[in-house]
């Protein structure tokens, strides 16, 4: 499993608080039984009109194509637990998300996919979104080892990230199945002691 220490690239800003996972990916796309096509759908209803023409959402603007960082505001990813939401962002090209705050389930899903969810203050996010809009060619580097964000190679600001999530990413232990399986014997012991498992 790969260690994720640094994520580099341009950043795409998507503004607004409480952007829920229904807005990130409308439920009708959840009827597909694989995640393969999800990269076509992020923010679909906010990006395209009834005829399928782009409405000028940042995900369709030429200057943000190829971005790997996503800048968002508060409570991003609230609502449904659908992993289709981070899957759709990842398959569009997002490798890291920086925001003011994240919904719990969404952030957990991101970690499972190796996508860091880093947080900064409201004031810092306003500056970051402004920078991404005004100078979209800015090359950002999210350094998970030092917990700093660089802009064009210079230290720009410090960010926070849940320490256990950071550890999982930088140590390459974010794909958890193997780690959990390794404790199968201990799992069986814990299970045996639970009254509802042993039959009270």
């Amino acid at each position: 499993m790969s260690k994720i220490n640094q994520i580099e690239g341009k950043a795409v800003p998507v503004e607004g608080n409480d952007i829920d996972t229904d807005r990130i990916i409308p439920a009708r796309y959840l009827k597909e039984i694989t995640f393969t096509n999800m990269g076509q759908y992020p923010f679909y209803d906010e990006r395209f009109d009834a005829e399928g023409k782009p409405k000028g959402h940042p995900f369709d603007l030429p200057q943000f194509q190829g971005s790997h960082l996503l800048f968002v505001n508060q409570n991003f990813g609230c609502g449904s637990s659908r992993e289709h939401a981070p899957q759709s962002l990842m398959r569009w090209g997002v490798r890291a998300i920086i925001g003011e705050s994240f919904a719990e389930i969404f952030a957990g899903n991101c970690t499972m996919l190796g996508i860091p969810t880093a947080t900064v203050s409201q004031a810092d996010m306003q500056k970051l979104q402004a920078l991404a809009k005004e100078k979209p060619a800015t090359h950002f580097t999210l350094d998970l080892d030092k917990k700093v964000l660089l802009a064009d190679g210079k230290e720009h600001l410090k960010f926070d990230i849940h320490e256990s999530k950071r550890n999982a990413l930088v140590n390459g232990t974010w794909d958890t199945t193997g780690i959990l399986l390794a404790n199968a014997a201990k799992t069986a012991e814990v299970a045996k002691k639970l009254p509802y498992v042993s039959g009270y």
Binding site: R82, P86, I105, G108, T176, T177, L180, L181, A184, T187
Partner: peptide, 17 residues
């Protein structure tokens, strides 16, 4: 609530991280 990759973990190990 959990996401699908976590559903995988519960199926495979009956545990979550």
């Amino acid at each position: 609530g959990i996401g699908t990759t976590q559903v995988r973990d519960v199926l495979a190990t009956q545990c979550l991280s």
